[in-house]
Design a protein around this nucleic acid. Structure first.
Lengths: 175, 175
DNA sequence: TAAGATTGAATCGTCAATCTTA
DNA sequence: TAAGATTGACGATTCAATCTTA
């Protein structure tokens, strides 16, 4: 590297900065909009909704806490607080685990399923109008690829989030 | 519309859902990562940093509160609390406005500028490594366009955020 | 009457510490 | 010794109400 180059990547050029500033605006405004819609219409945060949705898609509507934390992109602490609040509202219940007595399962109650089903149409409609329909189908594909690339950097070990990209269990490969 | 169509757009297909789930993971994890880096290295939230950065780029390092709220994508209430905390740490100061006595200006102090300058290299490096360098230059352009499209839906009146897209003050146009 | 800004109460998330069991 | 999970204290954001001035 020459002596008079910018040190280690340096600042952002104007195009990079403009893209970053717009993206930051989305990072601030979109979660706020999702929370606002769900709180107003269903008295749920977006994270609450997500927890209920992940439970509803599982066998017996039951998921191990540590697994649920991973699926909802949350720390164990955050999930524990949220599950406690949802349990007070009788939307979920906690069940002690028989095979591993350190663990516990969260389970969606009937009342929780009813809450989710009453909230879902409004929420899905909101997501459709504000995100899906705002983008062309090419842009939606691009967004998925971009999100994958970002998650590889933010969470390289895959501790959080849905299974992504092309590496499910690429341990036995030759590369 | 036919009688037996799905009501108003209906659910998301599997491709749309997969893209949305990945995007939601980014919305959860990236802000947390930004906050974590800045809190650890500079005792600032990402929003704190953003406020200081917006002030530093303005004439006399001074911005009207309502204007600063728009530029930082924040509600007046949120900004007011944050500015109070930053003022207690002597990183900003508030100045009563002479021309409009309802308004007040926030101004970056010398100490605030020093804080920003000491935090900037580490933060910019983090953004570069985790976002900019994770994407191709085509993807970064795509992300800017996607963010624009989303902001048009989330904030159609442009109450928040940086000036965007092709409509700066398109009032006098013919279209 | 509305714009600009602030405040206090309540809620939510984070961090560090803890407790139990594998 | 580490994994799974929880707790309490603290910090940050939201919501509704308020206050002042245009």
């Amino acid at each position: 590297v020459g002596a008079d180059t910018v040190p280690e990547g340096g600042w952002l050029d104007s195009g990079q900065l403009a893209a970053w500033l717009r993206f930051v605006a989305v990072l601030e405004l979109l979660p706020a909009a999702l929370d606002s819609q769900l709180r107003r219409d269903a008295d749920l945060t977006h994270f609450d909704y997500y927890v209920l949705a992940m439970l509803s898609e599982s066998d017996d509507a039951t998921v191990r806490m540590s697994d649920l934390a991973r699926r909802t992109n949350a720390t164990p602490s955050r999930l524990s607080h949220v599950i406690r609040r949802l349990e007070e509202r009788e939307l979920v219940e906690r069940i002690a685990c028989s095979d591993d007595r350190r663990a516990s399962d969260a389970r969606l109650t009937e009342s929780g399923r009813a809450k989710l089903e009453s909230a879902a149409p409004g929420h899905v409609g909101f997501v459709r109008r504000h995100v899906i329909d705002a983008l062309s189908s090419e842009q939606l594909d691009q967004l998925a690829a971009i999100a994958d690339a970002l998650l590889d950097r933010i969470d390289p070990d895959g501790d959080f989030g849905p299974l992504r990209g092309a590496r499910s269990a690429a341990v036995d490969s030759e590369g």
